[in-house]
Write a protein that binds this DNA or RNA. Sequence first.
DNA 1: CCGAGATAGTTGAGAAAGTCAACAGTTGTA
DNA 2: TACAACTGTTGACTTTCTCAACTATCTCGG
Lengths: 166, 166
Amino acid sequence: MTETAHPTARTAASPSAETGIERLYSAELANETEFLAARARSVGSRRANEDLASLDLKVRSYSVLSLACSGLNPSQRELAEFLFLDPSQIVALVDQLEKRGAVKRKADPRDRRSNIITPTAAGRRLYAQASAVVQAAGEGALSALSPAERDQLRDLLRRIAFADQA
Amino acid sequence: MTETAHPTARTAASPSAETGIERLYSAELANETEFLAARARSVGSRRANEDLASLDLKVRSYSVLSLACSGLNPSQRELAEFLFLDPSQIVALVDQLEKRGAVKRKADPRDRRSNIITPTAAGRRLYAQASAVVQAAGEGALSALSPAERDQLRDLLRRIAFADQA
DNA sequence: CCGAGATAGTTGAGAAAGTCAACAGTTGTA
DNA sequence: TACAACTGTTGACTTTCTCAACTATCTCGG
């Protein structure tokens, strides 16, 4: 071993720093915002999924539960559009949460085609726990940034995440 | 492809608002950095995939091609780790690109287990085109940000994207 | 030198996620 | 009223993810 630029790669004495792929950080790809956003999401959602597993949730179901608990009374179609998911996937997610007793499909009095997704009392409790877990995980992932930088990142991301909706 | 072309689905029953989904922007979820990163990635990669389709590429194969052309001589294992993909997926991606004549598997003289992925001349030309396409698409997605803000976003993302090397 | 254990790439299976087309019930409108 | 559009739903199909083997190779301790 001791390859060209591989100062670290020894046997698995140390758990994490053995990778030695830091040399790829200098690749052009590592400067493309798109790639960085994808990787940031991978880092974050992997972590969040692991932590949410203790509550039998994933980021997808957590997102739906969160919006159900938002007080904004989203319909399934709105959930699909907001989460960039196919309406058929929302069906499955709501099915799961409903079977579990966390949310309910409520008829929209103004449009009987729509289902308004609302949380049950148990759903609210579940969301409270999940929200705490996600927030803790987020803190960990963002620990490299100062509070001011986190706010800045949120603002910048929000502007590109919701840009095409105007 | 399907760009979810629902420009304005205003329903008369709906109260005044245009698309009606903007009200969800105020949801708690829309303030979580993780969610914003996921959505930003969705916006960006959807766009990039559409544009790369003209070259018969996807963001995944583009990423591999880009790293192959980086001059850093990545191995498949390094590609897997850097792109957060399973080694078996790298096999498929390299197979495609190799069959297409864009990259080659080269034996690593120091370790005959490893394959070093290098581009062919055609691969370099393909990457030049693809890179231009992706950059143009990225500009579109980032058009809401000033150049200084884009740099800032890149820096912030890089710090969290490469923060924990799980 | 040699065998034990680890690593790189490969294959294949199965789960999860994404995509798409069709359908019924409902709504708005010409 | 007839027609077009929309919502949720189902089902088929493709892509992506995850994991467990297997081979060939490497490293290391004895």
